[in-house]
Amino acid sequence: MLKILKYSFFDLMRSSWSYVYFAFYLLLGIVLLFLNSDLSKAVITLMNVIIVLVPLIGTIFGVMYYYNSKEFTELLLAQPLKRSSIFLGQYFGVALSLSMSLILGLGIPFIAYGLFKSNAIWDFSLLLIVGVFLTFIFSALAFNIALSNENKIKGFGYAILMWLFLAIIYDGLFLMSLIIFEDYPLDKVSLIGTMLNPIDLSRTLILLKLDISALLGYTGAVFKQFFGTSFGLIISIFALIIWVALPVLRIIHKSKKKDF
């Protein structure tokens, strides 16, 4: 698997898309710092961007890479290699190269701006951790979709729909159900609802850092325990790990049964 990972990774690192992605984050970081000239505010704006954009890019890139390397995959399948190592290798190659672009693209301007001397460094690290998690989750989901759909157009369609659903529609439905059932105790439900969507989950992690004061205004005991202690952080990170693990397991499972 590591060999496949290595080749996928270097293949991607050389592709122009990685440069585009890297350049995009570099530009974003520079522009934000230029406009705000305030590190902590730039970090806040960046969080809003990352939570929406990283999943989108992870999804598109994952699907694209899968379909583009289909023939190459077939070449690999005829070699004495395990299927799971081929697909996991490719998946980790994609996820790692995307994460690299993200970390370098954002890291360089922020470090140049004096991140290490600022107390925004923890917020920034959290931001990168969340970004990496989202990249891993969404490229895994994209691989799942691509593995289940031979048709490229369909695969792309489903992938974009999935992103749209998790990034926007889910929250709309979530909010609506909270309003409809507002007479009932909802604190547990709302936390569970958050866990079921990786974007919401990452948002929660960031809220824990940025908006802790607002979150503590709510009176529910469950909320208080969740947001008021490190419990929330631990649970959220744990849930993110599960969100990576489940799609990866499905990649393994699905790849074993698929015909090429």
Binding site: Y7, D11, R14, S15, S69, K70, E71, F72, E74, L75, A78, Q79, P80, L81, K82, R83
Partner: peptide
């Protein structure tokens, strides 16, 4: 099983390789 494939050489029909290599 995947090891048995080391005893087979295969020439696929459409040869499409990673274009960056």
């Amino acid at each position: 099983n995947s090891n048995y494939r080391s005893k087979i050489d295969y020439l696929p029909q459409i040869a499409n390789f990673p274009s960056n290599l």
